[in-house]
Amino acid sequence: MKRELDDIFKAYIVQLIIDKKTEQALESLSRFYEIRPPEIVVGTIKGKRRTVYAVYVQRECKIYCINSEIFYNPFIIMHEFYHHLRTTAGVHKGSEKHANMYARGFIDSYKTILNEIGQKDENL
């Protein structure tokens, strides 16, 4: 049976990242999917230093963020987590389009919940 994330959980994950609790967000998501969480660090890898904000390295099970600003960017973190999720499931790491759609789903849920409680976040 395929498990689905609900808007409240997605919004919670986004809020954790905004609150600078990125590792906790990844641990919570990984528990939900019953997979090992990826490691996440600020740093770069050879060949990707100037071309991307973040990258998931499958052989290391690690997300590299170019700086601390990216480390706390929910869209980029969720995009890279999608690649971790796909590779952990034993399938291709997934297209950039699908990773973007996955991340956008979290941001949209966050905005929906904010609207429901009467708040706005102009940064997302």
Rank of each mutant, 00 (worst) to 15 (best):
P38I: 02
P38A: 02
R36D: 12
K10A: 08
L16M: 15
I13D: 00
E39D: 12
A11F: 00
L29N: 03
Q15P: 00
L5F: 08
F9N: 06
R36L: 14
V14Q: 02
F32T: 02
A11D: 05
R3I: 13
I17P: 00
Y12E: 12
K21Y: 07
L16Y: 05
R36H: 09
S30A: 09
R36E: 15
I13H: 05
D6P: 03
I17S: 00
I17A: 00
D7T: 12
K2N: 09
P38H: 04
F32R: 00
K2A: 10
F32Q: 05
K21R: 15
I13G: 00
K2Q: 11
I35S: 05
D19F: 01
K2S: 10
P38E: 08
I18E: 09
L5A: 04
Y33V: 02
V14T: 02
D19P: 00
D6E: 10
P37M: 01
S28A: 15
F32C: 01
R31V: 14
L5R: 00
A11C: 08
S30Y: 08
I35K: 09
K2C: 06
L29I: 05
K2D: 08
L29T: 08
Y12H: 12
D19E: 11
A25K: 04
Y12F: 13
Q15M: 11
E39C: 04
A25D: 02
E39V: 09
A25C: 06
R31L: 14
Y12M: 07
K10G: 06
D19H: 08
L5S: 03
D7S: 15
I18G: 00
Q24A: 15
S30W: 06
D7I: 11
L29G: 03
E34C: 09
I18R: 14
P37N: 09
P38M: 05
L29H: 07
V14F: 05
K2Y: 11
L16R: 09
Y12R: 14
Y33A: 07
I35A: 04
D19T: 04
K2H: 10
Q24T: 13
T22G: 04
E23R: 11
E4V: 11
Y33K: 02
A25W: 03
S30K: 04
F9E: 13
R3E: 12
P38R: 03
A11N: 07
S28K: 13
